[in-house]
């Protein structure tokens, strides 16, 4: 995923004199106040920090309130999405007109119908809406799947992203990882997939269960079709 950087920063944190006896606490508090909000200086959102206060000395600012500046070395994890970056997130809501995604658990993104490529069609499966690809049967986006999408534009202040599923290398990550990135042919049979799973013992549990789910889903589909005919 794009948009995540680790930055080393030399900071000076100004601490109120009333906090002089717990300077470290005050510094951490100050940095914590930056978390999850957009900051122009860093041009992004700080997700995590790790600090080191190298010196015992701090410079006292002259003035009405003698704040003192503590020098801090910090490692900052910064999230700074830009247009045309590829982001990954979890689908939380899927309706006919849009797909709503949450990135990194806090930033929200929405992909409107016109930004979803033609290939995907909205269908109702087992009572829940999904976007299923018409060219690749197994490429399905549903609530709960992780998808990769392109940033179209964003509101930096609240990190509300407008995304797009137009480029071909976007969509459900699980499907993409099997069919696009490893360069194999997109339309593989179930047998081949199974072999794949056996070959990768590490991912076994997850993949197996995922396959199981699919099987279940398929059987259910048949049933419901029958019912529909009746």
């Amino acid at each position: 995923m794009d948009g995540l950087t680790v930055a080393e920063a030399d900071l000076v944190v100004y601490v109120h004199p009333s906090k002089a006896n717990k300077a470290r606490h005050a510094v951490l508090r100050q940095l914590s106040s930056l978390l999850f909000t957009y900051d122009e200086i860093f041009d992004g959102v700080i997700l995590a920090y790790e600090i080191d206060i190298p010196g015992e000395h701090a410079k006292i600012l002259s003035g009405l309130i003698p704040y003192f500046g503590v020098k801090v070395k910090a490692n900052l994890l910064i999230f700074s999405p830009r247009p045309d970056m590829l982001l990954e997130g979890k689908v939380v809501k899927l309706v006919k007109e849009s797909i709503h995604v949450i990135v990194l658990g806090f930033s929200s993104a929405a992909i409107m119908l016109e930004d979803i490529r033609e290939e995907f069609r909205y269908k109702i499966k087992h009572g829940a809406g999904v976007f299923a690809s018409s060219s690749h049967k197994r490429h399905v986006i549903k609530t709960g799947s992780m998808i990769r999408f392109l940033v179209k534009s964003l509101d930096e202040e609240i990190l509300h992203i407008s995304g797009s599923l137009v480029p071909p290398h976007t969509g459900c990550i699980r499907w993409l990882s099997r069919h696009v990135e490893d360069g194999s042919h997109p339309d593989r049979s179930l047998k081949e997939l199974k072999k794949d799973v056996e070959r990768q013992p590490q991912g076994e549990v997850i993949t197996h269960s995922a396959q199981g789910e699919k099987f279940l889903n398929q059987t259910r589909t048949h049933k419901s079709r029958k019912r529909a005919r009746e």
């Binding site: 999850f36 909000t37 939380v92 809501k93 709503h100 949450i102 658990g105 806090f106 930033s107 929200s108 929405a110 609240i158 990190l159 509300h160």
Partner: peptide, 10 residues
């Protein structure tokens, strides 16, 4: 809030 996790901030 489910769809826009940072909405409570606003």
């Amino acid at each position: 809030a489910d769809v826009v996790p940072l909405a409570p901030m606003k």
